[in-house]
């Protein structure tokens, strides 16, 4: 049994302890906003926010790793798309196919928590491990700056 909080709701799960958080979220809890991209931690599409401080690749974190943790997925970032990143993402039309964007947004959310006024260099450092196959990086960068009020 593993217990953690997802988007403010406490969940107790009877799944194999080594099951990656990604599949717990998607297949057990039906939170499909968190995406599968590579399964080996190299694309970032599955990123979620843990303990309101770091972005974690849910394909590498196991269910057991999450014991007692507070997880926020894209579905829990806001109830009405009011998070500054969501607003900037929509306004600047960041998504193309949109598949990687939940991971991009959750990584950007972690960045802004730790560094509310990031520079281009800070954005590069935090976002360089997140693949966008459509190539939306330029607008992601602009949207992070806009959300940060830069």
């Amino acid at each position: 049994m593993t217990t953690f909080t997802v988007n403010g709701q406490k969940k107790t799960l009877d799944v194999p302890s080594e099951m990656p958080l990604l599949w717990v979220l998607r297949d057990i809890l039906n939170l499909t906003g968190t995406k599968y991209g590579c399964g080996v931690g190299v694309c970032g599409a599955c990123s979620v926010l843990v303990d309101n401080s770091i972005a974690v690749r849910s394909c590498l974190a196991t269910c057991a790793d999450m014991e007692g943790k507070n997880i926020v997925t894209i579905e829990g970032l806001s109830s009405d798309n009011s998070h500054p990143l969501q607003k900037a993402w929509m306004e600047l039309d960041v998504p193309q196919c949109g598949y990687c964007q939940a991971g991009q947004i959750m990584n950007a959310a972690a960045l802004l928590i730790n560094n509310p006024k990031p520079t281009d260099e800070d954005i590069n450092e935090s976002m360089k491990d997140d693949v966008c196959r459509c190539g939306t990086y330029q607008r992601i960068r602009e949207a992070i700056h806009q959300a940060a009020g830069n």
């Binding site: 998607r26 039906n30 939170l31 499909t32 906003g33 968190t34 995406k35 599968y36 997925t73 894209i74 579905e75 970032l77 806001s78 798309n81 990143l85 969501q86 993402w89 929509m90 306004e91 600047l92 039309d93 960041v94 998504p95 193309q96 949109g98 598949y99 964007q101 939940a102 947004i105």
Partner: peptide, 23 residues
Amino acid sequence: TPQPHVDNPDIVSGKAKYGLDVR
């Protein structure tokens, strides 16, 4: 006129359904 994608609100809230999200 420049118009953001109609699916943006669903994409940034995680509601957008791709093939892998169908249940």
